[in-house]
Amino acid sequence: MRSGLATVGVLLLALVVLRVACAALRGDLGEWRSARALGRVAQRARRRRHGAEVVPVGRPVEQVAADLRRLHAAFHRGGMRFAKYEGCRLAYDRVLGEAADIAGCPHLLAVLPPGEELDHERERVEGLLVHHGLLPPPYAV
């Protein structure tokens, strides 16, 4: 029984190799779906052999810190029209929350509506991020 299954397996493998060789000679190997599927299976096998790929969860801390410093300067600059201020505030709060998550600081920036409570929460988170070194310390007035 085993030799019969081995023979069938060898015949099937020879058939696949023959079809791939014929498709390669004709030049339409890229359009042959089985060849692409065979390539994907080979890639998966190589990946498993070399180990799992590490996928980062979020953006790099350097990029978040650079965005945070840039938006911090833009947000605290005065004389903006309301639409520009509101867009800058939304972007700054989003990046501030992302930086707080990276630093492991709890925050309510995404939950609170615009107003005094959000302003106080923003100041609190800015102070924590200054302590963690993601924001420069405020200048003496």
Rank of each mutant, 00 (worst) to 15 (best):
V54M: 08
A74C: 00
M80G: 13
Q63M: 15
K84F: 04
L68H: 07
V57F: 04
V54G: 06
Q63G: 11
E53P: 13
H72Q: 06
A37V: 03
H76L: 02
R40W: 06
P60Q: 06
H72E: 07
A35H: 11
H50Q: 07
P60A: 14
A83Y: 01
G39H: 01
G58E: 15
R77T: 04
K84E: 12
A35V: 12
V41T: 05
G79D: 02
R46G: 10
G87S: 04
G51N: 09
G78R: 04
R81H: 05
M80N: 10
Q43R: 14
A65K: 12
R81I: 04
R49M: 02
R77S: 10
E62Q: 05
G79T: 00
V61C: 06
P56W: 03
E53G: 10
G39F: 04
A74T: 09
R70S: 08
V55N: 08
G58Y: 11
G79K: 01
A74N: 04
R49E: 11
V41L: 13
L68A: 11
P56A: 15
A35L: 14
L68T: 04
V57R: 09
G78W: 00
F82C: 06
Y85G: 00
H76Q: 01
H76P: 01
Q63H: 11
L68V: 08
A66G: 11
E86M: 03
